[in-house]
């Protein structure tokens, strides 16, 4: 993330869209709504432009610093959350579907082996 502009009325950041998706950016700025208002624009060829404007008359230096810190941390954290969500969405669906499967339609028998030398078979 790079700082493009930083004035008392405007803060602009450039974020590489290959690294941070639109979802990750929106989830990050959601939490910053009390201290600034945001616009997100495509910034060709491969970036997003994040513009922050003050909720009051102008930004103080502390608020500007705060926004930058929160953005950097938020992007990293929400990217991690996004990766987890993507990788686990199907397992989460299975957990929830099975949780409310009252009739046992989704029961899975163990796929593992049982090792009895004489040949006991628990499924028979």
């Amino acid at each position: 993330m790079d700082v493009l502009a930083s004035t008392d009325e405007l803060l602009q950041f450039i974020v590489n869209e290959d690294i941070y998706s639109e979802t990750v950016i929106f989830k990050t700025i959601y939490w910053l709504a009390p201290i600034a208002s945001f616009d997100i624009l495509k910034f060709p060829p491969k970036s997003f432009l994040i513009t922050a404007r003050p909720n009051t008359a102008s930004f103080s230096e502390e608020i500007k610093k705060e926004i930058e810190i929160q953005l950097r941390k938020g992007l990293v954290d929400f990217k991690v959350r996004d990766l987890i969500n993507q990788e686990t969405s199907s397992v989460r669906s299975m957990i929830i579907a099975k949780a409310f499967d009252n009739d046992g339609f989704l029961d899975i028998e163990p796929q593992s082996q049982i090792s009895d030398p004489i040949g006991f078979d628990p499924t028979r």
């Binding site: 397992v91 957990i95 929830i96 949780a99 499967d101 899975i108 593992s112």
Partner: peptide, 18 residues
């Protein structure tokens, strides 16, 4: 494993929480 072998246990616990 991609699908946890204890999926049944996790689901039962989810059900308990809800």
């Amino acid at each position: 494993t991609p699908v946890p072998e204890l999926l049944n246990v996790i689901s039962t616990r989810y059900r308990t929480k809800k």
